[in-house]
Every structure is written in structure tokens, then in C-alpha cells.
Amino acid sequence: MDIIHSRLVTIINITLDSTMITIFLGAGYLFTFILIGAYWHDALKELPVRTFFMAKCLQSAAWFLAVVRGEIPDFLSIAVANSFMFIGAALESIALLRLRNEWQRKFRTPYLLAALFSIAGFQLVILVHNSEEWRIICGSLFLAILLAPSYRMVKGPSSLMKVMGYAYLLVVAANLIRAATASFTDTSVSLFTPGFYQLIYLVSVFILTILGIMGFLLLWKEKSNQELLQYASYDDLTGALNRRMFTSGAKPLLEQCAKKRQHLSYLLFDIDSFKDINDNYGHHTGDLVLQDVVRRIRPLLGNNDLFVRYGGDEFGILLPGRNEPESSHLAEQIKLTLETAPSHLPVPYSLSIGVLTLVPDPHTRMETLYTRCDQALYAAKRNGRNRIARSQIS
């Protein structure tokens, strides 16, 4: 016990040269340049990554200016260094918000004003009451304010994003505690006063800096993977499932309905005289019609329904758990929506729909449903288009 106590006392009494610790911090930010520049060369073209990269550049400059305090004018090591730190913190938050697609117009103006106020407010403190205590209080509060929006990652969809959100909340809390300590106690919280507080604070900042860098890059990689999955799974024009993803999702639904002996319905439809729309109004108008079809139909579907664009103007909807009256009602709703809802398109259009309902068995295949429903679809077209025809599997 005496040995352990002795070692604890030794650790508590450790004081590191502030210049050396600050150099370590600067080196941590420099690590960002090397990592992003070497591995994420193409990613630098993207605005969130470029914004984060610029944030770390400014924060690195701030730490290196702080390293040489006393060797250069205070204007550079205090006023300019802290301004760089505030701008860097603001850009870091903006990069994270861009990553979540939350850098919205309504939020931009108040946040940018807060950033400008932080810079101007700190300079005013230097001019009016230039004491280290007041600089610590105001600087810590301003950093907490500028980093506060990062808390929104706590509500993110992935565990990584949530962890990053809590890490930034910890940084915000640390700055608030530092400001409160400087305001209400006699404890020195200066980063340039050797002591246990200095050691803990700077080492913590160093660790969180490295974690923040790695976390951001992992978040960007996660976002890129999600976008690749989106491209691989959905039709890029309409946002409906593509054929491959639909087939993959339909198989377990067929198996589930077969196991539970539940009804399953399938709708197959296309746009009447779609070739004439393209020929007479142009392919751009044809694309608008395809997008309009999906936009109108999607709100009518449930969470478990699968909506696919097979190609051209042909679409399908798989409805697990829907019986014949329910599927007929949905088909009528789709038809009614197209006939009554206002449209800004230069051409009206209608759909022909084939409908099929069955209780699948373990041998039921999606290809069989498609073939029989396709026959019903062409029956609807032969009977005058803009109609619903139903098929049954015998």
C-alpha cells in the first residue's frame, strides 16, 4: 500500500513543460493533414471533409502560436491564436452538421453570428480587461458555445455517431467546468501553469483530438458506404427499389407468408402510352412522369410493402399480409389519386394495373407471381387502359 501511495503521489506531482505538451497537441493536429492528405485525397473534394480539414489547420496554427508565447508578440500568441481556435471550432461543428445534412439555412445565420461574436468578444476582453482569468472564462465559454451543436450527433442513426456526439458533449462540459473553476475558485486553470490540472487537461485534449480526427474519418467512411448502398439498392431516377434489391427483399417475405399462411398481394403496372409521352413531350417530361408516379403512390404504402421499378415505365408493389379486398382497395386508391390530385406536369397520364392475391406455399416463386400478374396487366390494357384487372393462381 505504501508503494502504491508513493506512486500516486509521484503521478500527482508530475509537471510537464507546457511547451512540450502543446507541441504534442500541435503534432496531433498535424496528424490530420498527413492522414487526410494521404488516404483521403479524393475525399478532400467533398465540402464536409474540406471544412473539417480547414478547421484542423486553424487549430494547429493556434496551438503552435501558443507554443512560442513570450517569444512573439502577445497579439499573435493570444489574440490571433484564440481567434484561430474559435474559427476552427466553428468550422469543425459546421463539418459535422454537413455530415448529417443539418447545416440548414435557418441555423446558419445565428450560428455564424455567434462565431463572430466569440471572436469580437474575446478581442474586447483583451482591450478592456486583459487578465488571464477573464480570457480563460470567456474563451472557455465561447468554445463551449461553438462546439455545442455537435451534440446533435447523439441522435444519429449509428453507434459511432452517438459515441462521437457524447465525446463532443464531454468537451463542451470540460470547457464549462474550466470557466466555472476560473470564476468561482482560486485554482489555476491556466494551460501555462505547470501542475496536475495542466497535465490532465492537455492530455485529455490530446486524446480527444486524435479520437475526434479518427471518428470524423470513420463517420465519413460510414456515410460513403451508406451512399454506395443507396446507389446499389435504389433506382436513381425515382428512388424506388431496383430489381435486384426487390428480388432480395421479396424472397423472405414470401417465405414468411407461406410459413404463417398469410395472404400476399402483388401489383404490377405501367404508364399508359408512355412511349407517346416521350415522343411528343420529350424524355425529360417522361422522367418527370416516372418521378410523379412514385411520389404519389409512396404515401399509400405501408412500411413492409416493397415498391420496385423494373425498368422503363414498369413498376411493381409487393404487399405482404394484404388480402384481396385490401389489395383491390389500394389499386383503386392509386387510380383515384392519379385522377384527382393536382399535377404540375404538362401532360396527363394514367396507369394500367394487374393485381394478384394468394396464400403462398414454400414452392411459390416471385417469377410465377410476375408472370401471372403480367397477364392481368395486359388484360387491363386490352380492355381500354386506365383499368385494373385481377388474376388468380389456380
Results as ranks from 00 to 15, higher is better:
19 T>I: 10
20 M>Y: 10
22 T>Q: 05
23 I>K: 02
23 I>S: 07
25 L>R: 00
27 A>Q: 00
29 Y>W: 13
30 L>T: 08
30 L>M: 13
31 F>R: 04
33 F>E: 07
34 I>A: 10
34 I>V: 15
35 L>P: 02
35 L>C: 05
36 I>M: 05
36 I>L: 03
36 I>A: 05
36 I>Y: 04
37 G>A: 12
40 W>N: 04
40 W>R: 02
41 H>I: 13
43 A>E: 12
46 E>A: 15
47 L>Y: 12
47 L>V: 15
48 P>G: 07
50 R>F: 10
50 R>T: 09
51 T>N: 01
53 F>P: 06
56 K>H: 13
58 L>Q: 02
61 A>Q: 06
61 A>G: 14
62 A>S: 15
63 W>T: 10
65 L>P: 00
65 L>I: 09
66 A>F: 05
67 V>F: 02
70 G>F: 09
72 I>F: 07
73 P>L: 11
74 D>M: 13
76 L>S: 09
77 S>Q: 07
78 I>K: 01
78 I>G: 00
80 V>I: 15
80 V>Q: 06
82 N>I: 08
83 S>V: 08
83 S>R: 04
84 F>R: 04
84 F>G: 06
85 M>A: 15
89 A>V: 03
93 S>K: 00
93 S>R: 04
93 S>F: 02
94 I>T: 08
94 I>Q: 00
95 A>R: 00
95 A>K: 05
97 L>V: 02
97 L>Q: 01
97 L>K: 00
98 R>I: 03
101 N>F: 06
102 E>M: 13
103 W>T: 08
104 Q>G: 07
106 K>Y: 14
106 K>E: 14
112 L>F: 12
114 A>M: 13
114 A>T: 11
116 L>Y: 06
121 G>F: 05
122 F>D: 01
122 F>T: 01
123 Q>C: 12
123 Q>L: 14
124 L>M: 15
126 I>D: 08
126 I>N: 10
126 I>E: 10
127 L>Q: 13
129 H>F: 10
131 S>V: 11
131 S>K: 09
132 E>N: 13
134 W>Y: 11
135 R>T: 08
136 I>F: 04
136 I>V: 14
140 S>F: 00
